[in-house]
Write a protein that binds this DNA or RNA. Structure first.
Length: 257
DNA sequence: ATGGCATTATGCTAATGA
């Protein structure tokens, strides 16, 4: 099975990009973030016509997540149970024998801000939720836009980024906590020999052309899946199109070819 | 030092992102 993640930065605007990407058969299950629309505004017909099951946890203007799958999706869950949150950032579904949690982690704006405090609280709730889900689902993938660059080499310029938002020690501590639960970071484990190491590039300053990016989108998996990990790939094609998302899709492949 | 780009909305300026 191939499991992916992509922050599309508006599902309605990016639908043509998404459909052309899916048409290349890159993935079996795909978590989407920042769909920026309500559930009733999800372009369901177009995606279903292309052969995809669609479930979503939408929100107007901001945030919102969805999961696409070729195979049937079951046990649909939305948000982090027991965590009071008006923002739609989490959903989960089971595909075959794999539990997939799709997350759009809080950005945090700047270290020390109110939004930063919310980000750290939110990450604590996520960790507790993932720990619980792991008990019920030995084959679990937590995919999404984590808004955390785990290490200095996950930024194009540590001198600029170290200690700042996405790269502060408390944020990285939360990421390490997730790995501490037993999850494996597929891109870190199976880093492609060639090509970029980043998954996001600013729209400004020709950042993509200059490969001035960050690695903030991640596929984390339990040991049962990690032992079957074959490869993990950053798909640059959609980022090269006109009016792209600022994020690239990341896809990890498991099991026999 | 700032903004540089993109998306959305009781829209034409402001909020948010990373």
């Amino acid at each position: 099975m191939r499991i992916g993640t992509w922050n599309v930065n508006s599902l309605r605007v990016r639908l043509p990009h998404l459909l052309s990407f899916l048409a290349t058969d890159p993935v079996d299950v795909l978590g989407l973030q920042e769909i920026k629309c309500l559930d009733e505004q999800v372009p369901r017909e177009a995606l279903e016509a292309a052969g995809w099951q669609v479930v979503s946890n939408g929100q107007k203007t901001y945030n919102g997540v969805a999961i696409l799958s070729r195979l049937p999706l079951s046990d649909i869950s939305r948000d982090i149970p027991g965590f009071e949150d008006e923002q739609k950032r989490v959903m989960a579904a089971t595909v075959d024998d794999v539990r997939v949690i799709c997350v759009y982690v809080v950005n945090g704006q700047s270290v020390g801000s109110e939004k930063y405090a919310y980000k750290l609280r939110w990450l604590t709730a996520l960790r507790d939720y993932v720990r619980q889900e792991m008990l019920a689902h030995p084959r679990l993938a937590v995919v999404g836009d984590y808004n955390i660059a785990p290490a200095p080499e996950d930024t194009h310029d540590p001198a600029v980024w170290e200690g700042n938002i996405l790269c502060s020690e408390p944020e990285r501590g939360h990421f390490r906590d997730l790995l501490g639960l037993g999850l494996a970071d597929c891109l870190a484990v199976q880093r492609p020999a060639a090509g970029t190491r980043f998954t996001w590039w600013d729209y400004r300053q020709a950042a993509f052309r200059r490969d001035m990016g960050l690695r903030i989108d991640h596929v984390l998996v339990t040991p049962a899946l990690a032992s079957e990990l074959r490869e993990c790939h950053i798909h640059l094609e959609p980022r090269r199109l006109e009016k792209p998302s600022d994020h690239a899709p990341v896809v990890a492949a498991f099991g026999p070819g």
